[in-house]
Design a protein around this nucleic acid. Sequence first.
DNA 1: GCCGTTTTCGGCCCGACTGTTTTCAGTCG
Length: 561
Amino acid sequence: MPARHLSNGEIAAELMALAQFIAAKGGNPYKVKAYRRAARTIKSLGESIDELVRNDFDLTEFPGIGQAISSAIQELVRTGTLRQLETVRSQAAPELLEIAEHPRLDPRRVLRVYKRLGISSIAALKEKLAEGEIRTRFGMRMEQHVRQGLQEAHDMLYYEAETVVAAIKTFLRRQCGIRKAEPVGECRRKVEIVREISFLVEADDLHAVLTKVAGYGGKADILTATDTEALAQLSSGTLLRLTASPHKKWGVALIETTGDEEHLRQLRTYNSKWDLAVSSDESFPTERSVYHYLGLSFIPPELREGKDEIALAAENRLPNLVCAEDIRGELHAHSTSSDGANTIEEMMAAAQELGYDYIGISDHSQTLKIARGLSEEALWEQIRFIDNLNARLNGIRVLKSAEVDILIDGALDYPNDLLKELDYTICSIHSRFGQGKAEQTDRILRAMDNRYFNILGHATGRLLLKRPGYEIDVERIVEHARNNRCFFEINSSPDRLDLSADNARIARQAGVKVAITTDAHSTGEFAYLRYGIDQARRAGFPKTSILNHLPWPELERTLKR
DNA sequence: GCCGTTTTCGGCCCGACTGTTTTCAGTCG
């Protein structure tokens, strides 16, 4: 048995390396996926896998870990190495050894780049990336892949962070005996990409807490520590910031740890009372008490990013932000007719269960073959089907819609005589992302000229942490939308969140309403709604500017153009 | 390699289009 205990991060890295070698050899891609999935599972755990193994815990209890991977982990923990991996390592070329240490790089793609550029090291790859040669020789996509793959980044999507936050919170409470631990920072502001997880804690001795935290996931590094603040790096790479505050100053500390730099800077300069609140002996147990003391109304955490919230709070003019209860229906959902997992009836029943008044079925249009887009004939049939269904329904209405592709020339993917039969349309770009900003903008503007265009679907096509999305001139498109009675969606899918909060803010300020939609491909995905709500709140939307807050008759009138 | 209300094998989505990589591999949902 080795003297050294392995952290979850180290175990995961070995499995990832093995996956990289298998992938490089062109091995079974499902096997590669299985190793990667297992590694991700392990990384996300707070309990030490090493310890679990030594206590003979059955690792196959964890999702994605079966007999083979469980045995591999046991071997790793008990002997310190994995024979299978060492064998592969001893036979691998030096450049591959290096690539295997970068789990986010696709080995086969990188090896192809090496060959064409006549290089053989990560250092040279970085150089070529910096010189822009990856882009010129291999295109934007490859550049993006290499950049992401080389980044020592531990950013995660907000919805992934939620799981980590919950695990850490449990750890702080149970293992560290902390009475009160509240997630703050980016997580509390609901920022879509979380770079650092932070907690405000009520603890008498932060250093004692840190000794426990150092064992999180087998081992965590304490990077910096004072009596009141510490930064740790978990073995998964995630940064965890802990700030300690006494109960008496909890409100002040919450504000300090929640707002971004700009919000705090503006608070300090707003009036001298902020410094007093921080330093005086006076008790401020709640945020409300602090804001009141400053002469401001309560600022919801999602707005604390130094935009216009302090000026508005000073005049008591902050918007009453939309919340999930304000949503009366879903406007973007798929069914088995295209690429959804549930039938129209099942989607309808689930929507009814949620208390919705209406649900729009927006299946893909004919050109999007991969998503089994509906032919004209199939859409006609769906329209008749929904008419019949509605005749039998009580309490909920199924809306006739489609997610219509915006073709390369800005034309919509169905003829107008078919589009006019729909209650409304969601129009989206699903192809030719590589167009320039001007072309892509014109494409959308032309599409909006069609009177059957209602809502622009996922305006930029971004996939968070994966793909930047196509470039568009948001101001011009918002302006055109306003003039043509077109609208936007905030797509709540946690890796899209498109419109972004910033773009949504531009729409709101121009007076253009948005729909908060889930783009649900199954009944379970209706639950994504809250992520879209978060972005709408960050953009300062009150419910009155949300399309699917409206009752159907009013929504119908609003959509008419 | 994992998984199972389709349960110990066979599926794990997939199919047409695209290309400042070039004739396959990557890409769209």
